[in-house]
Write a protein that binds this DNA or RNA. Structure first.
Length: 471
DNA sequence: GTTGAGCGTT
């Protein structure tokens, strides 16, 4: 008899874990629940009918399915009320091994209402709900209407699960034959975390493939992209669905296929070179001076686009030019690290030809790309956008300051680069640079032996990688 | 009956 599973999460912002049901009576043993969620005393779920929270019947240490069966919903743990925090802490303590502890979420990962733009006039709330329920539990949908009841072509959706939100934000949506955008509403700007999903993986060897990296890092959380620059440069980028997981790995050394790699923050674009080296298709970015936006523009490479495409019922990838996890030459040019201390791009970009194929035939934004503002990596709004109609509203690159609004010190950046041999060795080499091959790693390892907290995270980022990986 | 950048009665 095959074992069935239900999805259980610690709370609404946590990733569900599949727990096995008892084959004989389809119940969930309390002990099974507590094995994963120590301290949990029950389960609850949101009733799809009326959106109310419902409790699960507990009898004889068994949790019984609702009347309609477990039904593919996500169930949430119930903890004794006056000791929730204690139990949560206990739960975290129990998860001693590294990979488990990475999975726990921080409180900043809350769901928020998301705006859905570009809805077909005919799309109603039921259709919207049905579409988004393919991604996860939907708490609310709205289609905004005028006084006559006619749709205004946009609406809102809210999910119960933060990862669902990330997933939905990271891709395009085809609803009732229209490509729609899902973004964090302007009204929620600044209320969501802006932490990069991408990490820099240094000290890679040439035989570490994308698959190796993905296979290794996926144990910490869903990996949405792995990018290995070509020609070989001894580093790569790994992008996680969950920025918290990405951040939690920063500062650590990991051994992959016997290779000791170092994970650190893939720093945002530096301010000093935002007007340089922009390709044809994206040049409107350079005039986008939204002051408070975070310049984590890491998603406009075609790998990423493809990785996100094809999810859900409508997220198909209409761009057939490249496949997931591939890193053909020329694409991903926005990953090419610039040198903020030199006049030009010391690395050479390899061209922008692969970059998002932005013909901008849709001036509502380039829906070939997952939109970054939506992911909370960039804030939207673009109040300072001076670009013309070709502006890419999905990808307001080139925005001014770094995400943490830290002042840049080019000398420090240069020093850091120099440690890698990224400065002296790179300038004047055009496109044939080879990246950090013979770095003096010892000092940095000394400094980074402790996993960084947020403060350290910023320090490491400032010291080491505060230059532009995004363009 | 048409339209297609935007941002929500609370």
């Amino acid at each position: 008899m095959s074992v069935e599973y239900i999805q259980v999460a610690e709370d609404y912002s946590d990733e569900p874990i599949e727990l096995p049901l008892e084959p004989d009576d389809n119940t969930l043993l309390l002990s099974t629940l507590q094995g994963q969620f120590p301290g949990a005393t029950g389960l609850k779920y949101r009733n799809p009918e009326n959106k109310a929270i419902r409790g699960i019947r507990l009898n004889d240490l068994k949790l019984h399915a609702p009347g309609c069966g477990w039904d593919g919903l996500v169930y949430y743990c119930v903890f004794p009320k006056d000791s929730v925090s204690e139990n949560k802490r206990k739960s975290d303590d129990v998860m001693e091994n590294v990979s488990k502890s990475k999975v726990s979420k921080c409180q900043t990962n809350k769901c928020t209402d998301l705006i859905v733009l570009g809805l077909a006039w005919k799309t109603n709330e039921q259709a919207l709900r049905e579409y988004f329920e393919t991604f996860g539990e939907v708490l609310m949908v709205q289609v905004k209407k005028d006084a006559k009841g006619q749709s205004k072509g946009f609406g809102f959706v809210r999910f119960s699960n933060y990862e669902t939100q990330l997933r939905v934000l990271g891709q395009r949506h085809h609803i009732d034959s229209r490509w729609c955008e899902v973004k964090v509403p302007n009204s929620k700007e600044g209320q969501i975390q802006q932490v990069p999903c991408k990490v820099f993986v240094g000290r890679c060897t040439e035989d570490l493939t994308q698959e190796d990296l993905k296979e290794y890092f996926c144990k910490f959380g869903e990996v949405t992209d792995v990018f290995i620059p070509r020609p070989f440069r001894a580093f790569s980028f790994v992008t996680f669905l969950d920025p918290e997981i990405a951040q939690s790995l920063c500062g650590e050394d990991h051994i992959i296929k016997g290779v000791s790699v170092h994970v650190s923050n893939a720093a945002p674009k530096a301010d000093g070179n935002r007007n340089q080296n922009y390709g044809n298709s994206m040049n409107s970015r350079s005039q986008n001076y939204a002051g408070n936006s975070a310049p984590y523009n890491n998603f406009s490479d075609s790998n990423y686009r493809n990785e996100f495409g094809g999810r859900g019922s409508g997220g198909g990838n209409s761009n057939g030019s490249s496949s997931n996890m591939s890193s053909g030459g020329g694409q991903n040019s926005n990953f090419m690290p610039n040198n903020p201390n030199s006049g030009g791009n010391a690395w050479g970009s390899g061209g922008n030809n692969g970059n998002n194929s932005s013909s901008n035939n849709n001036n509502r934004g380039n829906l070939d790309m997952p939109n970054l503002q939506a992911l909370g990596i960039n804030s939207g709004g673009n109040p300072g956008n001076q670009s013309g109609s070709g502006g890419n509203m999905n990808n307001p690159l080139g925005v001014g300051l770094n995400a943490l609004n830290l002042p840049m010190n080019p000398a420090i950046v240069a020093a850091a680069l120099n440690q890698w041999g990224l400065l002296n060795g790179m300038q004047g080499q055009g496109n044939n640079d080879q990246g950090p091959n013979n770095q003096p790693w010892n000092q940095q390892q000394q400094r980074n032996q402790n996993a960084p907290d947020k403060t350290n995270f910023m320090r490491v980022k400032r010291m080491k990688y505060d230059y532009d990986w995004s363009d």
